[in-house]
């Protein structure tokens, strides 16, 4: 499982970085999305991978913390997802405004040849 997860994070971030460095604004948006998926998975994995363990402990009595998953990274991921979703949506709006104003989807607002 470690190998699959790390490969997924690696491939997602590699493709994300490649796309972020491209000159078209749509590619940049997709690249940022992929990067944020990679980061979310990464945060998740920082709570250690524990298959089949619940993150919430029962009330009262003695609990053995080793039998439970770390709930904190899961909470962090939720926050990170919401924030990156919102900012990406904002970025899309700006991108469309730029496309409308300049007539091109180049990130600099003009084609390089011009």
């Amino acid at each position: 499982m470690e190998i699959i997860l790390s490969a997924a994070i690696g491939i997602l971030s590699a493709s994300g970085i490649w796309l972020v460095l491209r000159p078209r604004s749509f590619q940049v948006v997709i690249g940022l999305c992929l990067l944020s998926y990679a980061v979310n998975l990464f945060i998740f994995s920082m709570g250690r991978l524990t298959p089949g363990a619940p993150p919430i402990m029962p009330k009262g009595g003695f609990v053995d913390p080793t039998r439970y998953a770390d709930p904190l990274p899961q909470a962090l991921v939720l926050t990170a997802i919401v924030i990156s979703f919102a900012t990406t949506a904002l970025f899309l709006v700006v991108m469309i405004a730029s496309r409308g104003m300049t007539g091109t989807d180049h990130v600099d607002g003009k084609e390089r040849s011009q």
Binding site: L35, S84, V94, M95, T102
Partner: peptide
Amino acid sequence: VRAGMHYIAINLAAS
């Protein structure tokens, strides 16, 4: 809008 787009992209990556 152009400066804003660069600014947002950089800051998203930084976040």
